[in-house]
Design a binder for these strands. Sequence first.
DNA 1: ACAAATATAGGCAAATCTGTGGCAGTTATT
DNA 2: AATAACTGCCACAGATTTGCCTATATTTGT
Lengths: 234, 234
Amino acid sequence: MSKKIYIADDDANIRFIIGSFLKNEGYQVEEFESGDALYERFLAVPCDLIILDIMMEGRDGLAICAKLRESYSVLIIIVSALDSELDRITGITLGSDDYLVKPFSPVELVARVKALFRRVDLDRKVVSADILVVGDMRINVKSRDCWIDQKKVDLTPTEFTLLTYMFQHADQAVSRQQLLKHVWGVEWDADTRATDDILKRLRKKLVDSRVKVESVWGFGFRLVVEDEHEKSEK
Amino acid sequence: MSKKIYIADDDANIRFIIGSFLKNEGYQVEEFESGDALYERFLAVPCDLIILDIMMEGRDGLAICAKLRESYSVLIIIVSALDSELDRITGITLGSDDYLVKPFSPVELVARVKALFRRVDLDRKVVSADILVVGDMRINVKSRDCWIDQKKVDLTPTEFTLLTYMFQHADQAVSRQQLLKHVWGVEWDADTRATDDILKRLRKKLVDSRVKVESVWGFGFRLVVEDEHEKSEK
DNA sequence: ACAAATATAGGCAAATCTGTGGCAGTTATT
DNA sequence: AATAACTGCCACAGATTTGCCTATATTTGT
């Protein structure tokens, strides 16, 4: 399906050039004169990627970028005539995925846009990959083994299947029902705490890992990666 | 988050500099003299991100990058002295996530490394996220957690379900009947103040937020976002 | 302003949930 | 066949949640 891209730049020429190249690649493109206009539009109709100039009327590109990042994971590329190292680092640190310096080649921009979409696709596909990685752990679904860092962990069949499911749903809250259905193949409403039992045993085996199974009270469980040092990086 | 990074560059100085900066950020770093050595190591122990020079003994960085991309979704940054537009585009098109031209600032490299990790984290969390936003609050239906700005709020199951319903009907007046039906699953006319109780507890947890639960006298409740300018009104 | 109806706040106890250790039936391994 | 491993269940203790009760405050209608 065709991806949607919004561009904000106060220079109509640049908008036109960028827009043309991207449309040529089959993307749906909308152009805006200001970051504020783009932001309003995004709230109404989200898009997949945003290209922001820094210097614009109203809020500048950096402000828009930071504002978007508060709540959205949309891809953001900043383009700017500002070429100091500090500018680039600021732009990237504020939340953009890439930073291009004007004048830039439209072809390179297109390549970088594609690279970002490719990255998102790769990250999506990871769920169906043979090797699943979460935090310092990885499991190989084919060979059915499991590693904490470099150390192999022995898992029983049910434990492995359960952990695989949790890996595929990392960060999500998973209900006992869900687990019974996907790990045990039980469709009906079973009154059992078999899930708790396997998790109990799994937890013991994960004590040395930063990957933890949290319980979500009254609901189920959630796989999370413990942050050992800093509290709020983002 | 101690992610693992492999670096391949035939210049020991560059390896050292890059490695130092990255270790300084808390990453686990391993250095290799050639892309082939790095590749072998990766097969044995995967890492999270790879930094490749183009010109090296054996297969060059581009070849390694392409080879890795055949089977793995690991992050790849290419660094190179080659600075033509074509070189950059080739590098990115072949599968790398970023392309930096030597000499580059180690600080910028670190910023870009962080940006890539940030992207992967965002994608992982959003892959199937179902996020509702109202004012300064955010709830993720899939992970079942709730945030005021950047601060996590613990909710009980009923509170969570109720708040979700209110989020879906923000600004609307919601009757007790409605809540009993959708949150409790009660169809009949129940004479209960259970709704008031949960809301009472919810309100306590939302004191720091601009999102408030108003009561609609004789009817039910309404979720509103307080205007921060006229806080003294109520 | 006053009475009736409705809403809020605090406290309480029943019901529910979770983690633990132990146990036994079944399955796999030697 | 004997032994070990795996898995589900049980019971218990501790913690959390939640509905209700009562007292008090607020709103509405006359």
